[in-house]
Amino acid sequence: MTDQGNDRESIGARLKRARKARSQSQRAFAEAMDMPLPSYRDYEGGKRVPGGEALRRLAGAGIDTHWLLTGEDLAPPAAAPAMAHDTRGTYRTRGPDGNTAGPPDTRRLTEVLTAVETALEDMDRQLPPARKAELAAALYGLYEETGKAPSRRTLERFIRSAS
């Protein structure tokens, strides 16, 4: 699958730029993301688009997934994580002081879940609950980063990569 986003720079090129900003080799970066090196190479080489789990890991390490997927530079590629992984495996927004804030915004989460369900139905696709949860977590993180609900195009891109 090739990148359909920004014509000037592909997802793979942005991923490489984020990795280089951290002065890491492909192997070190893949290990830090806990993903197989061949998979990471495929992402960076533009052969595959990162799926929900890979996006979750990248977001958890501070990669702005909105920037990665669209090229819209809302935050630098090596910025601090927008989402904090807690010990229960859930994601919560970070407050301005960098500490984990309260529970996720229920209204935003409802909007994301409704949009995912509607898009899946419109695209005549199904996802297992775990993949759907990963997708929703990544999209919720994107919503938190940008302050606006994901566009239909972004939803469809995430769904295709999660399928």
Rank of each mutant, 00 (worst) to 15 (best):
K47W: 01
A54H: 02
R48E: 03
M33A: 15
G62W: 12
R56N: 14
Y43I: 03
A61F: 06
A28E: 15
R27C: 00
A59T: 04
L55W: 02
F29T: 07
A28H: 08
E44T: 08
S39Y: 04
V49K: 08
G51E: 02
P50R: 07
G45Q: 07
V49E: 01
E31V: 09
T65K: 01
A32R: 12
A59D: 12
A54L: 04
R27I: 13
A59H: 12
R57K: 15
G60S: 14
G62T: 10
K47Y: 05
R41P: 00
P50S: 12
G60T: 05
R41G: 03
L68W: 04
P36Y: 04
W67M: 12
F29N: 03
I63P: 01
R48Q: 14
A59K: 07
P50E: 06
A59P: 01
G46D: 06
I63E: 00
D34G: 06
K47N: 12
H66S: 06
G52W: 02
E44N: 09
A54M: 04
D64R: 09
D34W: 02
G52P: 01
I63Y: 10
A30E: 10
M35Q: 04
G46P: 05
D42C: 05
M33Q: 11
L55T: 03
R48W: 07
L69H: 02
M33W: 00
E31T: 08
T65L: 10
D34S: 15
T65A: 14
M35T: 13
P36A: 15
A30I: 08
G46V: 11
G45A: 13
V49F: 06
G62C: 11
L58A: 15
P36S: 11
R56Y: 07
A30T: 06
E44V: 11
G51T: 06
W67K: 05
G45R: 08
E44S: 07
R27T: 12
A32V: 00
G45T: 06
M35S: 02
F29P: 07
P38G: 10
R48L: 14
G46N: 10
K47H: 13
W67D: 05
M35C: 12
A32F: 06
E53A: 10
E53P: 01
D64G: 12
G52V: 01
R57N: 09
L55P: 00
L69I: 08
R48H: 12
A28V: 11
A30Q: 08
R56S: 10
M35P: 01
Y43S: 04
H66A: 11
G60Q: 13
L69D: 07
A28Y: 02
M33H: 05
R27M: 13
L37M: 08
G52E: 04
I63V: 15
D34E: 15
R48M: 05
A54K: 04
Y43T: 02
G60E: 13
H66Q: 07
E31L: 15
V49L: 13
Y43N: 10
R27A: 15
L68M: 12
L55Y: 01
G51L: 06
G45H: 09
M35H: 01
L58V: 12
A61G: 13
